[in-house]
Write a protein that binds this DNA or RNA. Structure first.
Lengths: 139, 139
DNA sequence: TACTTTAATCAGAGTCTCTTACTAGTTGCA
DNA sequence: TGCAACTAGTAAGAGACTCTGATTAAAGTA
């Protein structure tokens, strides 16, 4: 079976379940918004960096940040080190969603490990991390 | 690092490269169209099955098949076993694209194996296949 | 100061996907 | 047989996402 599909199937399952858990907990974000939200660092992140990390154009990232801002999940503050730039930061509201996502992720990982075994799970992680070295464009 | 991202990064790289190779070879299909095209079986596949396999609604699948039909990559023929249904089949034109995609995929897999080693690659496949048992909704 | 680059935004369009509602053909069962 | 329930597919319309191209403002540089 096609390695692409093999990678995609569990990824999609994970993503769907995490989104469902977050939505269930009352946080109303879309998948695209979540993908951006996820990349925002603790001290705030510039839009351009966000766009690169999420692999979308700056326009798209800006569009999504606009929505997140309206929903109260992020705020834009001036970047003290560069007058042109602004830092996107997550608000307290968004921080409430993080543990929900993390808990669901932990639950899924535990399930996966139970099904394929601890050894295979470790091997999976190791192989993927090594693969990231040549497939991650932002590293 | 987040297992979801770990899965997604190589997947995305693979997909991007295959799409680039197919486009380069003169086949003008979009990603969404390719995702549907990929699932069509040798004897044709019903729209509903296609929608399920690609995890989109019937309407979306129909929309994409319409486009593929206009582009000459697929054709719809009556399903002899059910008067309501039609079978979507790939045309000769589309069959020309398959080897291009397959060749690029083989090239990528070889690269990956060179980087992470034969043993890890085997372990990766094995883990993913086992994971598919619980994460593939269409199995 | 003038030129080049970079961060972000604006305007507009195209693509993808969904929900709801519908038509037509099939199947199960009284 | 005849009808209710189901299934395959389509239609209409809206919303979400993403892109290209152009613009503004601030830095950096010669």
């Amino acid at each position: 079976m096609n390695i692409g599909l093999l990678l995609y199937i569990p990824y999609r399952d994970l993503e769907n379940r995490i989104m469902a858990a977050v939505t269930e907990a009352g946080f109303d974000v879309t998948l695209a918004q979540a993908r951006v939200l996820q990349r925002i660092g603790a001290d705030g992140t510039r839009l351009t960096e966000l766009a690169e990390a999420a692999q979308v154009t700056k326009q798209t990232a800006g569009f999504l940040v606009d929505q997140l801002e309206k929903l109260g999940y992020v705020e834009r503050v001036p970047d003290p080190s560069d007058g042109r730039a602004r830092l996107v930061r997550v608000t307290e509201k968004a921080q409430g969603a993080m543990p929900v996502a993390a808990a669901e992720m932990a639950r899924i990982e535990a399930e996966w490990e139970r099904h394929i075994g601890k050894r295979r799970m470790t091997a999976l992680r190791e192989a993927l991390e090594k693969l990231g070295e040549i497939t991650d464009p932002y590293r």
